[in-house]
């Protein structure tokens, strides 16, 4: 049993290290880039990987390594931002449902049922069409499509925590529902929320890339993995490195996030295996 956990942790360790590297890269990106990731240099276009440009250059002569480093910022930000939107809405709505119950619960859950009926990508597509293109809007679009999952998770957990004696006691003592929620219930549902968030970050990055493919991503010339992958796709035959590098970055991040998320789940709450449905 112990050895299993340790070995589990080994995968998680790898994931965590990779994530840390990506995170630090994003944080210090401006200091790390060897070239200006935005400046076009037609004379250096489509250079294959060389010592000068370890990952080659794209059709505009921009250094792909520099764009990959800089792109980490926006890609992670999109993922985090989307999850933040879903998290905020999920916690507020889920807590209210679980703690207040009654009509609030019924109403919100019906709304969530309705939201569930619209496929995530389709919803994101319509949201971007409503709000227009751009990083923040993509974040919102992806975030909105994640809300139902978060609300359901939080509500479900609140309901099970509520059965606990100490919450009952607090309610019996006449505490306000908000206080019950924040002081007693929330701390107990943090673990599953963290686990869901990790998986949701991965999902957001992928969905963001798909929106770029449909022409609804962030605005050029901002480096972002999804949009770079999408831009490079017509060069797959001529210059594979343009799309492969951002594509590999996305894969690496998503795999790492999942490894960490898995370990967290096993550690924090083994009952949560149904979360794999994200």
């Amino acid at each position: 049993m112990l050895s299993r956990l340790l070995r589990r942790r080994k995968a998680a360790l790898v994931g965590a290290v990779v994530l840390a590297v990506i995170g630090l890269t994003a944080l210090f990106a401006p200091a790390l880039v060897p070239y200006d990731p935005i400046q076009v240099k037609p004379a250096e276009a489509l250079s294959p990987p060389t010592l000068r440009h370890p990952f080659g250059t794209d059709q505009y002569g921009r250094d792909i390594l520099s764009r990959a480093i800089m792109g980490a910022r926006l890609s992670l930000l999109t993922g985090l931002g989307a999850v933040a939107v879903a998290l905020a809405a999920g916690v507020v709505l889920g807590l209210s449902c679980g703690v207040i119950g009654g009509w609030t619960d019924l109403l919100v859950m019906r709304l969530i049922d309705i939201m569930m009926a619209f496929p995530g990508t389709l919803m994101a597509l319509v949201v971007v069409a409503v709000l227009g293109q751009g990083t923040v809007n993509v974040m919102l679009a992806v975030g909105v499509s994640l809300i139902p999952t978060f609300v359901r998770l939080v509500r479900g957990d609140v309901l099970s925590v509520r059965e606990n004696v100490y919450v009952e006691a607090a309610r019996a003592l006449g505490c306000w529902p908000t206080r019950v929620a924040v002081q007693h219930v929330l701390p107990n549902v943090v673990a599953p929320i963290i686990v869901l968030s990790t998986v949701a970050i991965a999902w957001s990055i992928i969905l963001g890339a798909s929106l770029s493919f449909l022409g609804l991503g962030p605005r050029p010339p901002i480096p972002e993995w999804g949009i770079d992958l999408s831009n490079g796709r017509s060069y797959l035959l001529r210059a594979w490195w343009i799309s492969s590098v951002p594509g590999f970055c996305i894969m690496l991040t998503v795999v790492a996030v999942n490894l960490v998320g898995d370990a967290l789940r096993d550690e924090l709450d083994p009952r949560l295996r149904s979360l794999a449905n994200l």
Binding site: R4, A209, L236, G247, M251, V255, N258
Partner: peptide, 27 residues
């Protein structure tokens, strides 16, 4: 369970979900 086969299988599964589908499709 808990052999390299276990981990390899899970990694393959993870690889499938972590590639944006337009890229996977073109490849």
């Amino acid at each position: 369970h808990d052999t390299w086969i276990d981990r390899a299988a899970m990694l393959v599964a993870l690889g499938g979900v972590s590639m944006p589908s337009f890229w996977l499709g073109l490849l």
